[in-house]
């Protein structure tokens, strides 16, 4: 009986320790702002999994899921800039480097640092940024960072150079759920 209890405890504590959270409907938005024009696009189809113990985190978003206000902009984004037929998704693989500061069982707002590899348009870059975990009735992860299209070999033609910002702001907002196998 005792042995059984010990086994049960060991199994339970391992499960609790390798706690994973996920979402398939994360929001990713980006914003380009210039004096000539403001452009924004949103996706609600980003997927993500992270491990609350190790901090390892992965994100993936279908490029075709970004919605723009203007159909024409969406077309240009897909065909000319991110070339989404060839590179259908954007991904991030990395980790929350100070995940131990987050108490997932206690309400609050916890700052976290994130670093890892961002891949867009087939080009991978190291990025570092910070964000928050907001523990309330659910678990929400939020972060903001900026990227330059030129870093990802995205060429902006001269005719529209004034309309597309050199630095694009990206907002990430994820409502995570517990991952049960």
């Amino acid at each position: 009986m005792k042995q059984l209890l010990i086994i049960a405890f060991t199994v339970l504590s391992t499960v609790a320790y390798s706690q994973k959270y996920f979402t398939r409907s994360g929001e990713i938005s980006f914003y380009s702002s210039t004096p000539v024009e403001d452009i924004e696009a949103h996706s609600n189809s980003a997927s993500s999994i992270f491990d609350a113990k190790t901090g390892a985190a992965e994100f993936s978003v279908p490029m075709k899921s970004f919605q723009f206000e203007k159909a024409l902009m969406q077309e240009h984004f897909n065909e000319n800039y991110v070339e989404s037929d060839e590179f259908p998704k954007g991904t991030f693989k990395g980790k929350f480097t100070n995940i131990e500061n987050v108490d997932f069982s206690k309400k609050g707002e916890y700052p976290v640092n994130v670093e890892g590899e961002l891949t867009i348009h087939g080009v991978t870059k190291e990025i570092k940024t910070s964000g928050y975990f907001i523990i309330d009735n659910g678990i929400k992860g939020e972060a903001q960072f900026t990227v330059s299209p030129s870093d990802f070999d995205i060429e902006i033609p001269d005719v529209v150079r004034d309309k597309i910002a050199k630095v694009i702001k990206i907002k990430v907002s994820m409502n995570y759920k517990e991952f049960k196998r």
């Binding site: 996920f22 398939r24 189809s45 997927s47 993500s48 999994i49 992965e58 993936s60 279908p62 490029m63 075709k64 899921s65 259908p88 998704k89 991904t91």
Partner: peptide, 8 residues
């Protein structure tokens, strides 16, 4: 169809 998600 927006492609394949390797995570899931």
């Amino acid at each position: 169809c927006t492609g394949y998600d390797d995570l899931f």
